[in-house]
């Protein structure tokens, strides 16, 4: 455990130093991995810890992005616009969608969450004031006292700070008694009900926490790209994150980040050699689902354990 923490710390320091060590393209990739890592970790709280395979997570990612874009463009380029409002909006939406979705389970939960994300997608796609199918361009980065976020290295550390915040918050959640109950639900929901746990309340809380962090990831994505479009809300965006979680290792926090790094890294690496990177990624993903459901992290542990 202690060595794992040391490894994580060394990794974070290395990532923080990237803008001074490598060119601008790898730095951009690292930022993308950090943002999608936050998104995938927040989804893993539902999928890996509470056993809820949600295709609705993109709704909160996109919502956070849209709220941030509107507030940063039209109201004030402050941290309130970049963090507080998107998180609050995603939490509120997560409360409503989660409250309804946890009423059903299995394939019904999967399809219900998919329907909800498509409602968000359809609403944004048809709303003129949200830029319809083009989305909202020209999203500025916020101004923090004395910091110029348009400078690459400052923005890099800013994203990394959010990443660490999300990581620490989620680590506290999953190690708390609350997190242990979630694991119990994932393992055997009926047993937890029989033991007297208000399982629905625990699932709803997990759903809202996950949605909130996804909203923050979406806000960062909008600031990173400078725009947000309805694509972010589409159900396959959730699928992409589910893919990252599965490849990296569900039910861990390092797994989704590893998965995001593998997905985005491979995509950039392969696309410079071959057009068929989606084929390779898709096939790799199928292989993981079939033969290594515990993901890269699980494979590494299997190796280490002999």
């Amino acid at each position: 455990m202690r060595s794992a923490r040391r490894l994580a710390l060394a990794g974070l320091v290395a990532v923080a130093a990237l803008p001074w060590l490598v060119g601008s393209y790898p730095v951009k990739l690292a930022q993308e991995i950090l943002i999608w890592g936050i998104f995938a970790m927040s989804l893993d709280l539902l999928m890996g810890y509470a056993g809820m395979l949600s295709f609705g997570h993109s709704a909160f990612f996109g919502l956070g992005g849209y709220v941030a874009a509107l507030a940063l463009r039209g109201w004030s380029p402050s941290l309130v616009s970049a963090l507080v409002l998107p998180a609050a909006a995603a939490a509120a939406a997560g409360l409503v969608v989660g409250f309804l979705s946890i009423r059903v389970s299995g394939v019904y939960f999967i399809m219900l969450t998919l329907a909800f994300s498509q409602m968000f997608y359809a609403a944004a796609f048809n709303a003129e004031w949200l830029g319809a199918s083009d989305g909202l361009p020209g999203v500025p980065r916020p101004r923090l006292i004395g910091l110029d976020l348009d400078r690459t290295e400052v923005f890099h550390l800013y994203i990394l700070a959010f990443f660490v915040l999300a990581l620490v918050a989620l680590a506290r959640v999953v190690r708390s008694p609350f997190g242990r109950v979630l694991r119990g639900v994932e393992d055997n929901e009926r047993r937890m009900v029989a033991l007297g746990y208000a399982v629905r309340r625990f699932k709803l809380a997990a759903f809202v926490v996950g949605a909130t962090i996804a909203g923050v990831a979406g806000s960062l994505e909008a600031q990173f790209n400078g725009y947000i479009s309805p694509e972010a809300l589409f159900w396959t965006t959730s699928g992409e994150a589910l893919l990252m979680v599965s490849i990296g290792g569900a039910g861990t926090l390092a797994g989704p980040v590893l998965g995001a790094a593998a997905f985005i890294g491979l995509q950039s690496l392969l696309s410079s050699y071959t057009e068929h990177w989606t084929l390779i990624l898709g096939a790799a993903f199928i292989g993981f689902v079939l033969w290594a459901p515990e993901g890269l992290l699980g494979l590494a542990r299997r190796e280490a354990g002999g």
Partner: peptide, 26 residues
């Protein structure tokens, strides 16, 4: 995957979307 419940099955079929999408373009 039949013994492993709906989550693994749904993820598997989602993976095939990527594979077929690329194959068709290819």
């Amino acid at each position: 995957l039949y013994a492993r419940g709906p989550n693994a099955q749904v993820l598997l079929t989602f993976g095939f979307i990527y594979v077929f999408d690329d194959l068709l373009r290819w």
